[in-house]
Design a protein around this nucleic acid. Structure first.
Lengths: 246, 246
DNA sequence: CGTAATATTGACTCACTTCAATCAACGTGG
DNA sequence: CCACGTTGATTGAAGTGAGTCAATATTACG
């Protein structure tokens, strides 16, 4: 195996569909540069035309965000190692939301036109990218429901459960918990609540033994209880389509 | 021009990317059947594997929906003539949400494998389908924000504005308003509120002269006022990528 | 260390929900 | 053609989950 930063992309797409040797070398032949963003810097800005390259996260976390005209913020998705940041705009003429680095963020920036080309001309790669994008859509749908129809405890538990499984799928060690890379204010913007109420709700979840916390570390004493409180059913993550293939 | 029900698909995809004559005939050669659903019947059920055909709406309205374990419902999207109902599951192994007919629904059901094939093997068609799917994602993002960060008046106005523009883009006559195919209970499930509060809020919007109503007809006296109350900016609909091309 | 960012807690308010009754529209069958 | 049952819409009164405002504690970090 080679030792290119694009290996990550080969691996990621390889979990979504079966790639031939030719597919793999097509990916490895993509023009790219590596790049680092500081925490909280903008990767994509709403209203601007898409940039000439597309970022794949190598390390760190990012989020998508939209602002109300009144200035309140809604975080509409969270992303981690192995996630594409610009697939959502790959064929669109204008960015409809902002993407920001959550932590220090290392990415592989692939040329947009080359990425479009392999998405359209290499069926196995196209399929893998489709699946990736459809899973993102599925998560959006779940979030609409989360924010629209669950109370604070359920919303927060749900997001904590989702993040746990996604981190595990992304290869983070599973210590029965994880370091949540969000301030409570950011978590509030994820779940459509105020920071104050998030603080109270987290405390109540902790008192009830649903999670335990140490700074930003979220631990699950009782996964089933957390999943029950969060009304969490992993179906929508389509993890069966995110397992490594030959 | 031919006179197949698939003309609708040719037209729809033609608004999203430039199709060659060969692309058009590839679409028209797709195996399909026509089909009608009664209002409120299920088109797709959560937890089931995707069906062997994919529906494109010819006439009528449909919605995607998810249920909380407690039984409350969130409608996560609304669809009309020219929208695909199964693109969201085209490459997934399992349905993650329900799709239901909102009204009597006429569709063209295209064979799923054939649709996958042209999506992957015909770049111009693939691009058009990508754009269609990415616009759906963009709408999901907007709805997350709508439900997460706007109050009842804004949420409802926003949805009413969105529907107005989408109906116009789908070729419905623009009478400064439209027949909203939703009960207030369904509208409540769209915006994450109770039917009672939707009723009150609609009344208040009417009293303030933002909209006028006659049964289910929604009329806009003052579009700008409605857009302002709904914090509505059409950017996210990417309507520039939904105009007919040569 | 000192200073800013983040988290916690309390007291009070309010937008939306809940419960419940009434009303209107509409199809349907006798 | 009208009685009637069902579904959808409206309205009122009372309750509540989450927001707001504000003070204080805690942590991060240059």
């Amino acid at each position: 195996m080679s030792d290119s930063p694009l290996d990550l992309m080969v691996h990621k797409l390889g979990t979504r569909s079966e790639l031939s040797a030719a597919d793999r070398s097509a990916i490895l032949a993509l023009p790219y540069v590596q790049r680092t963003y500081h925490a909280s810097s903008y990767v994509v800005r709403e209203g601007e035309p898409p940039r000439t390259y597309c970022d794949l996260i190598q390390d760190g976390f990012a989020y998508r965000q939209k602002l109300t005209s009144a200035g309140s913020r809604q975080i509409v998705s969270l992303h981690m190692r192995g996630d594409f940041l610009d697939l959502q705009h790959l064929f669109l003429n204008m960015a409809d939301h902002n993407v920001q680095a959550l932590t220090e963020l290392k990415v592989v920036a692939v040329e947009r036109e080359a990425l479009q080309a392999i998405a359209l001309n290499r069926p196995a790669i196209g399929r893998a990218m489709w699946i990736d994008s459809l899973v993102d859509s599925s998560i959006y749908r779940e979030w609409v429901m989360n924010v629209g129809r669950r109370d604070a405890r359920a919303r927060i538990s749900h997001v904590l459960c989702e993040f746990a499984l996604r981190m595990k799928a992304a290869g983070f060690p599973d210590d029965n918990g994880y370091e949540l890379p969000l301030t409570q204010e950011q978590l509030a913007d994820v779940v459509g609540l105020t920071p104050v109420h998030v603080s109270r709700t987290l405390k109540s979840l902790e008192l009830d033994g649903i999670v335990n916390r140490a700074k930003r570390f979220i631990g699950f004493k009782d996964w089933h209880a957390a999943a029950a409180v969060g009304d969490f059913n992993a179906l929508y993550l389509h993890l069966d389509q995110a397992t490594p293939r030959t």
